[in-house]
Each structure stands twice: as structure tokens, then as C-alpha cells.
């Protein structure tokens, strides 16, 4: 009896907190289906589903184009980070050389430099390279990632040394070992890192704000800012429709990748 009561109490607490945490997202969903009138009345549920808000959102802004841009940019950064970080992590784990620890420490110390502290010269660099309003301007600066290297190194280290040695005896080249053994072996941590970098890139705000000044490569996040300034006080339904469109891809990715993120990121946190 005591156990049952405890269980009920637990579910009650879980449900209430889950509702509180999830409420803003739910609220955005609900409002995106409301007409302006319903909104002003303060209803929580719309009497009927209106899809006009979505239609309007796509009409007023090149939202589809922004979505495309965000996909291209997030995907590029994800692939770039995976390639660059896993190469570095491989070197730190499997290639013995003098000063390896010192160089690794240098890598880790880059995590202490806040990216925002470097944004002014970076902006100037991008300007000088004529990379304003280009995909490369939005992606390449983020390819190198100390955290990713660190995370992958942690996992690469769990590969038994003998696998590498067996490959050496068999004459398998470093690159083949890397591609055929290390990458499949550490599939999970690569998925974790991939999901993480896609998520963070998709959600990036400040840098796209700086290096885009027309629609050509602008991302959805900046689109939201535009929507917000355009629609202020009037059409909140349209704004929320925009929000829903923007968060759905990442929410889906999060739901799929949650298990990986939960395990993988925690592993990175431990030393």
C-alpha cells in the first residue's frame, strides 16, 4: 500500500513538473493554430484548427529558404566538426609523439576562450575574406571544436590498444584503421557529437546575425527575429507558427538522439 501511494505521488510530481517545463512549447503550439480574436480572448484551446498562421508565416518571410539555409549550415558544421575532431582525437590517442600531452592541454585550454571575446576580429576576418552572406562564413569558423575532440578522445581511449597493434602487425594503414575500425567502434559517440553539433548550429544566433545582412544565407533563427519585429503586437499566431516550424526539426532530432546525448555527453563530462 505504501509502495502504491509512493508511486502515485511520484507520478503526480512527474506530471506536474513535466507540464510546467513543457508548457511554453505546448503554448506555442496551441497559439500557432489560433486566430487573432481567440488569442485576445485568452483561450488556451482553439475551437478549430486554423492553418492560416503557417501559411502567413511562409508568405511573409522566405521561411522555406531560411529552413534550407539552416539545414545546409547545420549539416556542414556537423560533418566538418566530426571530421576535424575525430582526426585530432585519433592523433591524440593512437599516434605516440613527443609533446602530445602538452598539445592536448593547449587544445583543452581553447575551451576557456569565450567565442564572443573573439567575434570582433573574426567578423573583420570574414569581411576581408568577402565571406559575408556566404555559407563558408557561417560554417568554417566552427569546424574545429575542442569539446568534440575531448569527447571523442575519451571514447577512442576505450578501444583496446591491441586492436591497433594487431592492425599494425597485419600492415593495415593508419587511415584504414581509422576508417574501418575506430569510426565503427565509436559510432555511438560520433552520433552523440553529431546530434549535439547539429543542434547547437541550428540554434546559433549571434554569428548569423553578424555575418548575414540579406536573405541569401540567412538562417531561421534570424528569421524569427525578423518575424518578431514585423509582427509585434498584432499577429502572434503567425509568430508562433514560425516558432513551431523552427523548433520541430531540432525537437525531432532531440527525441531520436536523446539516449545518445544522455549517455555520450555525460561521458564527456567525466574527466
Amino acid at each position: 500500500m505504501n509502495g502504491l501511494l509512493k508511486k502515485i505521488a511520484l507520478y503526480l510530481v512527474l506530471t506536474i513538473t513535466a507540464f510546467v517545463v513543457f508548457f511554453p512549447i505546448l503554448y506555442a503550439f496551441l497559439i500557432s493554430f489560433m486566430t487573432g480574436g481567440e488569442l485576445l480572448q485568452g483561450n488556451l484551446f482553439s475551437k478549430s484548427f486554423h492553418l492560416e498562421n503557417y501559411q502567413k508565416a511562409f508568405e511573409r518571410l522566405p521561411l522555406a529558404h531560411y529552413l534550407m539555409n539552416s539545414f545546409i549550415i547545420s549539416l556542414s558544421v556537423m560533418i566538418g566538426q566530426l571530421v576535424v575532431s575525430s582526426m585530432a582525437a585519433y592523433a591524440f590517442v593512437f599516434i605516440p609523439f613527443k609533446g602530445r600531452d602538452a598539445i592536448f592541454f593547449l587544445f583543452i585550454s581553447t575551451m576557456m576562450i569565450p567565442w564572443e571575446a573573439t567575434m570582433i576580429p573574426n567578423f573583420i576576418t570574414i569581411q576581408q575574406l568577402d565571406w559575408i552572406n556566404t555559407y563558408q562564413g557561417l560554417t568554417i569558423p566552427f569546424f574545429a571544436m575542442a569539446f568534440g575532440t575531448f569527447l571523442l578522445r575519451q571514447h577512442f581511449k576505450t578501444i583496446p590498444k591491441e586492436l591497433d597493434e594487431a592492425a599494425q602487425v597485419a600492415g593495415i594503414s593508419r587511415f584504414k584503421f581509422f576508417v574501418k575500425i575506430v569510426v565503427p567502434y565509436c559510432k555511438n559517440s560520433l552520433i552523440t557529437l553529431g546530434a549535439y553539433s547539429f543542434l547547437t548550429t541550428w540554434n546559433m544566433y549571434l554569428w548569423p546575425l553578424l555575418v548575414t545582412n540579406n536573405d541569401s544565407v540567412r538562417t531561421v533563427q534570424i528569421g524569427l527575429k525578423q518575424l518578431r519585429t514585423q509582427e509585434l503586437a498584432t499577429d502572434w499566431g503567425v509568430v508562433m507558427a514560425g516558432v513551431v516550424v523552427v523548433i520541430i526539426p531540432t525537437l525531432v532530432l532531440l527525441f531520436i538522439g536523446q539516449k545518445y546525448l544522455q549517455k555520450g555527453l555525460a561521458q564527456g563530462a567525466l574527466k
Binding site: P160, E162, L163, E165, A166, Q168, V169, A170, G171, I172, I181, Y185
Partner: peptide, 18 residues
């Protein structure tokens, strides 16, 4: 290099690719 020595090797933990 190990691969040029005409040897094969068996490891204690077998070193099989999982």
C-alpha cells in the same frame, strides 16, 4: 614496421574487431 617483418601475432585479449 611490424607489417614488414613477416610475422603474425595473437594477443592476450585476442584483439578481435568487435
Amino acid at each position: 614496421h611490424p607489417s614488414k617483418r613477416d610475422i603474425s601475432m595473437v594477443f592476450q585479449n585476442y584483439a578481435l574487431y568487435p
